[in-house]
Amino acid sequence: MQLNGLIYTVPKEIKLLIGAFIIVLSIGFYTGLLFVGETSSANPNGIEEQYLGNESDENAEVMKFKKSEKEMLTLVHNHILSMSIIFFLVGGILSTTQLGKKLKLFLILEPFISVILTFGGLYFLWKGILWVKYIVMFSGVLMTLTFTVAIIIILYQLFKQNNVSK
């Protein structure tokens, strides 16, 4: 079965369904990023402070305490499960776009690697391996970039005129 470019042949009702899903999913995804920015200052030291606390900093504007093991396991579990479903669905839709094989494969597989590095990294950071905060930051940025590129490609091709080359 040929998937490359299949998105152009999907009926209008399904295109509208996919488009609505992608837009609402994106709102949820980017709202989550706003939350990250509010809670961790979106920098490596802010990430460390969010999970390990800042009780020793007398000048801290907001007092933060180290997360419990239950909180960390819940966070890692929930994010890995939910984001794997998100990226599975986005990857499935992206697989129907007309795109180079290597780029498509990268955009489909990379977010899964970043999910493991980001949320597994948060757990290792919490365990005291402080240098992992840089991996968490890098993988989180890369995951966001690949999500954004995939969404733009999907939305563009979803509503582009049918120019299917067979």
Rank of each mutant, 00 (worst) to 15 (best):
65 F>S: 15
26 S>E: 00
101 K>C: 08
137 M>C: 10
92 G>S: 07
155 L>T: 02
161 Q>P: 15
70 K>T: 15
72 M>L: 05
27 I>Q: 06
149 V>R: 04
31 T>L: 09
150 A>F: 07
106 F>W: 13
134 Y>P: 04
55 E>Y: 11
128 G>F: 05
53 G>W: 04
158 L>Q: 04
135 I>R: 07
151 I>V: 15
85 I>A: 14
110 E>P: 08
72 M>V: 02
77 H>G: 12
103 L>Y: 13
155 L>D: 05
100 G>V: 03
158 L>H: 06
159 F>R: 04
78 N>E: 13
34 L>Q: 13
133 K>C: 04
119 F>Q: 02
61 E>C: 09
48 E>A: 13
68 S>Y: 08
101 K>L: 10
27 I>C: 07
97 T>M: 03
131 W>L: 12
113 I>M: 12
24 V>T: 14
26 S>A: 06
153 I>S: 01
22 I>Q: 07
70 K>G: 12
76 V>I: 08
56 S>Q: 15
66 K>S: 10
154 I>D: 01
49 E>N: 09
153 I>R: 03
113 I>H: 10
61 E>I: 14
51 Y>G: 05
52 L>G: 04
101 K>Q: 10
72 M>S: 00
115 V>F: 08
38 E>N: 15
89 L>Y: 03
121 G>F: 02
93 I>K: 02
156 Y>S: 14
24 V>L: 15
120 G>T: 00
